[in-house]
């Protein structure tokens, strides 16, 4: 029940979380979901990403997937793209790495150097 304009605005912030994905802004996490990626456990990594984002209530992060980019032996590969910054590719990512990547890179902009396999401008 909306009893004031403030109520409406609060509800809007909540509701925006549901549709942010269609706005096309914010940080993007790209999971490599080629056959190689899936074989290396990309499905689990994807689930971990989604769980982590939900846990942190991060609704403005877009999660997309991509096919094989040729570095099959480094799968699971995930890319993090922060608007206006270098695109970072992490390799051999395990579900348990996700919390760290999201916490330091996605939120705080600190690249998790030990997992990086490539940096693209």
């Amino acid at each position: 029940m909306i009893k004031s304009a403030e109520d409406l605005r609060r509800l809007r912030e909540e509701a925006k979380a549901l549709t942010n994905i269609r706005a096309g802004q914010g940080v993007e996490i790209i999971v490599g979901m080629g056959t190689c990626g899936i074989a290396a456990g990309a499905r689990e990594v994807m689930s971990a990403v989604l769980d982590e984002l939900a846990k942190r209530d991060m609704t403005d992060v877009r999660v997309t997937q991509t096919g094989c980019i040729g570095m099959c032996e480094k799968e699971v590969l995930i890319d993090v793209v922060r608007p206006g910054e270098t695109r970072i590719t992490y390799g051999r990512v395990k579900p348990q790495d996700i919390s760290r990547i999201i916490n330091s890179h996605v939120i705080n902009g600190q690249i998790v150097e030990d997992l990086v396999v490539a940096k693209l401008d």
């Binding site: 304009a5 409406l8 809007r12 509701a15 925006k16 549901l18 549709t19």
Partner: peptide, 25 residues
């Protein structure tokens, strides 16, 4: 084409009823 018309929250998420709030208050 951008929102679910049967979910008022999707309308509100796209600044729905904000104009009314502005006018009324």
């Amino acid at each position: 084409g951008h929102i679910d018309p049967e979910d008022i929250k999707e309308y509100i998420a796209r600044d729905g009823y904000e104009a009314l709030a502005k006018v009324l208050t």
